[in-house]
Amino acid sequence: MAMVGQTQAAKSKEDLAMQRFVRMRARMQRLSDSKFFAGWVCEMSHQRAVIDCTDESPCVSSDDVFVTVMGPQQGLAFRGRVALVHNSRIYIDLHGPLRTVPGTEESRIRVTDLNALVLVGDTEIEATAMDVSPKGIGLRSPISVENGASVRVSILSPGHTIQATGEVRYCKPDADAPGSFRLGVQLNDMDRVSRARWTQMLSLQAA
């Protein structure tokens, strides 16, 4: 009985540790055809992962998948089987051990309630931040912006504004919001104060 209790306590501790991967970017590979899909981690435990997929209906129940979750300091990799697909959410039962993998600076965190102003030439765009990373920000914009355009971004973080300059790396129609566009902006330069605020905000979002 003592051994069972210790095992359950260890798994509970492991589940708590894995909560740091919630809202992180995930990449899934369907093993039957090696096709890749992307999504965001909604729930994570040693038994099951729930991923909100950005691709329309990529999997069906019983599909075997390999998943990599990209955290900033440490990532997570595991194999599993799709137990349920409901709307955009994929419920995956984990099979086999969880492996830690090196983190990446490109790790992205899903965010809510974060707005931004984007200045492109003389045009100011009110945008919504969708995800953030150490070197970039994903935005939802009401208008299209040319790839490669230089922009100035004011990120309206609670309590202060973060100023940065950057470059639009991609712009594509937003499948989740018809008439809007998803922008990927590489942040190239911030002053010392904005850099400190950005680093602090990333730490709070990842907590």
Rank of each mutant, 00 (worst) to 15 (best):
L76Q: 03
P58N: 11
V69K: 00
I90E: 04
Q73L: 12
V85K: 13
F37H: 10
T68R: 14
F36E: 13
N87L: 15
S32C: 10
Q74E: 04
S61T: 12
I92S: 06
H95S: 05
Q73A: 14
G80S: 08
P72F: 15
V85S: 09
P58I: 08
Q47V: 05
F78R: 02
H46F: 11
V65F: 02
V82D: 01
D63K: 02
A77Y: 02
R89G: 02
F37Q: 07
W40A: 00
A77P: 01
G80C: 06
S45H: 01
F36A: 13
V65S: 05
L31V: 03
Y91Q: 07
S61C: 10
A83K: 14
R48F: 09
I90C: 10
C42K: 15
D33V: 03
S45K: 01
R89L: 12
D33P: 03
S61K: 15
V65D: 04
M70I: 08
E56D: 12
L84K: 13
S45D: 12
S57I: 13
C42T: 15
G39I: 02
D52V: 07
W40N: 00
P58G: 08
Q74R: 06
V85L: 14
R81A: 06
D52R: 13
D52I: 08
N87E: 15
M44Q: 00
I51G: 03
F78A: 04
I90T: 09
M70G: 01
E56V: 15
S62M: 10
G96D: 05
D52N: 13
Q47L: 06
D52L: 15
G39H: 02
G75P: 00
H95C: 05
S32K: 12
S34N: 14
G39E: 00
C53G: 10
F66V: 07
G80M: 05
V41K: 02
H46R: 12
K35D: 06
V65H: 07
I51C: 10
